[in-house]
Design a protein around this nucleic acid. Structure first.
Length: 115
RNA sequence: CGGGGUAAGCAGAUGGUCGCUCCGAUAUCCAUCGGAGAGGAAAGUCCGGACACUUAUCACUGCCUAGCAGUGAGUAGUAGUGGGUAACGCCCACCCGUAUUCUCGAGCGAUUGAGGACGAGGACCAGUACCACAGAGACUAUACUAGUCCCGAUGCAAAUCGGGAUGAAACGUGAAAAGUGAAAAGAUGUUUCAAAAAAUUUGUCUUUACUGACUAGUCAAGACAAAUUAUUGCAAGCUACUUUUCUCAGCUCCCAGUGAUGGGAUGUUUGUGGCAAACUCUACUUGGUGCAACUCCAUUCAAACGGAGGCUUGAGCCUCGAUGCAAAUCAAGGCCUAGAUAGAUGACCAUCACCCUCCGCUGAAGCUUCGGGCGACAAGUUAGAAACGACUUGUCCUCCAUAGCUUUAGCGAAGGAGGACAGAAUCCGGCUUACGCUUACCUCGAUUU
RNA sequence: GGCCUGGUAGCCAAGUGGUAAGGCGGGAGUCUGCAAAACUCCUAUGCGCCGGUUCAAUUCCGACCCAGGCCU
């Protein structure tokens, strides 16, 4: 789990990122980022009802995605002052942990927010 | 071996790296240490409560006005009886039915005892609606028509119109046919059968006469056959109706039971289908909205956004005892056991155990099959009158052998893959649905002995 | 989290205790030099799924599945 300061929680923040952020769409993921004027980076995750009907499957996917981001923050490889939203797309349920990690790293690299 | 049901239990463990939430202590803003951290269904949201706001669909009454209570109507719901509960559509026990019996037992038997399964199981003598098609008739049962008779009107008459009476059968139709099923007697009608003899109609044949003639038509007579009508009954079948007896339901009385109900008696007094998961009636319950309820703080003219509370000590859990057939209740002692909020309780890796499933190797049995050999039978050829023999083809049995499938046993450190349903969101009691494994019992099916 | 609607043929849909209208679509034909339009005929395993009540269920009742909407 992320630390509280690294969580994107408020609906206003989500709306701001989704409306004004710049994004990229991959095969199983969507990514959007936007600047905030804070000293840290905050992440939010969206897994809709369409991805999986059962709540435990959605929660497991979010836990895996969060853990990937958590390790990145721990290694201090992310730039500060950003808000990001990770959006799951259909078909993502069949991916393994390593496949998710590669795809997410590829997306972060494209957006040039890695140090 | 497989399926189903009921009851009980479990919901992998250990280690490593990196993490999350709450509480407490130290500490004082960074952290450290310790403790705790999903379910039997947390799910579906189908019922019921707690809790909060709202006086709330109407009218009336009382207390006495701050609100509370009651009655009636309305709305919605439940439905054998009794009990349990905060409450329920839930649970327990019993009754009745399915049932002239599903299982087991006793008995020669009639019968009887015990157990299991299933049942949304009040009332169609309060009223209303519906019961398609078929059928005379689907609840005021047997109508309507043809036909016959009478009367009246019109008309010379024939006839027409109107009214009244009479008017066959109840086979059958249908999911259901007039309280229920059975028996006996009487009796009516009908059908069949038998007898005797007659009439009518139709058909065929023959003969006569006529039509100019005819193998055509008509008339008459005769013979045969069939059908219909009428008569008789010593027959048989069905049967309207009547009577009697028993049965079923109901009424009255007695006994047992809190009660549903059961047992018995009395009598001939009562007896109109189905449907209420149709309206309805009866009895009982029932205001509405829902924690995104609601309260507070801050901001504001007022709100909204925001924060905090509500929020986890509760119809709580464990042990023992008492009461009760049971559901459950009571008493004593002990315990504190999630509280997140884009939503924690984990992510990744390794090892071990477990049993199960699938794949794997070997053996056995059975079945099918490509091929080959011995034999038996049939057909054909040699073959001529016939036969043996020989050859060819087909079928069958057995053996060898190839491949496949099924079952079963063993081996698996020679291995691989997989591990159910599913995530608290105010809390609780139920129901329903999803689902892996173990144990016990019951039940169904298949195979083997 | 809570509340509420709906599911009928390929599509849009009506309907009600007695075996299911209509339109669009699809096919064939008439008409035309050929088309379109028009007309005629035909077509379809259709009432989400399971169980119950009933003689009979798409309809009534219960459970389940799916789709959509509202409260913030």
């Amino acid at each position: 789990m992320l630390q509280k300061v690294n969580r994107l929680a408020k609906k206003k923040d989500f709306d701001r990122v989704l409306r004004f952020g710049q994004g990229i769409i991959l095969k199983d993921l969507g990514l959007k980022i936007s600047k905030n004027d804070l000293p840290m980076t905050r992440f939010g995750f969206i897994v809709s009802n369409k991805i999986a009907k059962r709540a435990n499957k959605r929660n497991k996917l979010k836990r895996r995605l969060r853990d990937i981001i958590r390790l990145k923050i721990k290694e201090k490889r992310l730039k500060n002052g950003l808000d990001a939203v990770v959006i799951a797309r259909q078909g993502i349920l069949d991916r393994t942990y390593l496949e998710l990690k590669e795809e997410l790293e590829f997306g972060l690299n494209k957006l040039k927010i890695l140090n």
